[in-house]
Design a protein around this nucleic acid. Structure first.
Lengths: 206, 206
DNA sequence: ACTATCTTTCAGAAACTTCTGAAAGAACAC
DNA sequence: GTGTTCTTTCAGAAGTTTCTGAAAGATAGT
């Protein structure tokens, strides 16, 4: 009578989810605990206060406080209040796509933007143009500098494309990403004129 | 006479690039040194051997060896040999888009695939169906289990879409990503019938 | 203004990751 | 088969990140 795959009760299932979400932390560029706190809020679907989070995940008050704050900064968790209760409650964004948009927005800001800025800076300070400046710029070095400049350009054009895509996906209207995803899926399917059909149906949805 | 933005010579410019690429390491889910080794190989554009890497980045032999191996595993660096030289040389993928495809491919495999598998597993073991099993499944718990099941479904559909997009981008033909990126840029531009023009020009390019 | 309740901060502790360098392991030449 | 050259491995050292818990800081009720 023992079932082939052991049945989990609610708490066990939630714990499993929290654990695997915690393992993904690295992928999102956040700490494990922060991901676990987010997972807990997401999967319970209701607002929890600091003590409930501490209790459920067995973490210290300081850790809970810092993790919750960081999640607020990322914009994927919001504060909430219950009347007649002075505690703060925290609620996770429930729409998975909205959550993903917030993450992309934040990572563009934190990672891609500074990178692009730095690449431009190097390009400026290298200047493959009429570079007959003070330093003994011999022929061999000039050629190498030009190659470097070319590589920087390729890199820049790549990241600017990424940033452009990202910004559109993340746009205030918010309809970009899901539509684009399914459109792309159809567009890149091989053969026939799937493209036309995909386009037409997308047009209609406007 | 001092220039407003100080000019960099080749080595200085490369070092700057290596440093900022190293800072991005976290974003790609690799260690700083590994990113620096990759940056060095990418920016010098030619094959370097272990000793050259050690010397240039001032790292130990063990570290160089391990980092190079990891880069090979990621598929963004290849082995090369020079005739009359027993040393191994390492060359970085020079096409930025190809490099990015390799990274996406690897991260899908390492992060998204296992996540999707785990989510399915939890769903299986929770089974919102005729769940009148051994455990005292009271009404309240059943309702909560159903909510959990719904959230898992949303998450799954999200990641399956991501994986679908990713797999297409990464496809053997390789033409997917750049085309899709520019197409999308046009498609999501506001107003008019940019969509038709984008589509037409993409069609032509086939 | 005092007290009770809740939140944030931060110095040091614990846990984890990355790096080193010496030793073992391959591959090749002779 | 021996010596030479290059590569990989791995135990412990160094460095980095994350966590704790107690103390300081807010906020609100009386």
């Amino acid at each position: 009578m023992a079932p082939a795959s052991p049945q989990l009760d609610l708490k066990e299932a939630q714990d499993r989810f929290i654990a695997i979400w915690g393992q993904m932390a690295g992928a999102w560029g956040i700490s494990r605990t922060m991901a676990e706190v987010h997972a807990l809020l997401f999967i319970s679907g209701e607002g929890l206060n600091t003590d409930e989070v501490m209790e459920r995940l067995q973490i210290s008050r300081g850790n809970a406080s810092m993790s919750l704050r960081a999640l607020l900064d990322w914009g994927i968790v919001e504060r909430a209040h219950k009347r007649g209760d002075r505690k703060e409650y925290f609620v996770a964004e429930q729409d998975v796509w909205a959550m993903f948009r917030a993450i992309v927005r934040e990572r563009l800001k934190r990672e891609v933007d500074p990178l692009v800025a730095s690449l431009y800076e190097i390009k400026d300070q290298t200047g493959a143009r009429s570079n007959t400046g003070a330093r003994g710029s011999n022929e061999a070095e000039r050629i190498e500098l030009e190659k470097l400049d070319k590589r920087l350009d390729e890199m820049l054009s790549f990241f600017k494309t990424v940033e452009g895509m990202g910004t559109r996906f993340v746009s205030p209207t918010g309809r970009g990403l899901l539509a684009a995803a399914s459109l792309l899926a159809k567009l890149t399917d091989s053969g026939d004129n799937a493209r036309d059909r995909a386009l037409a149906s997308e047009e209609r949805r406007q």
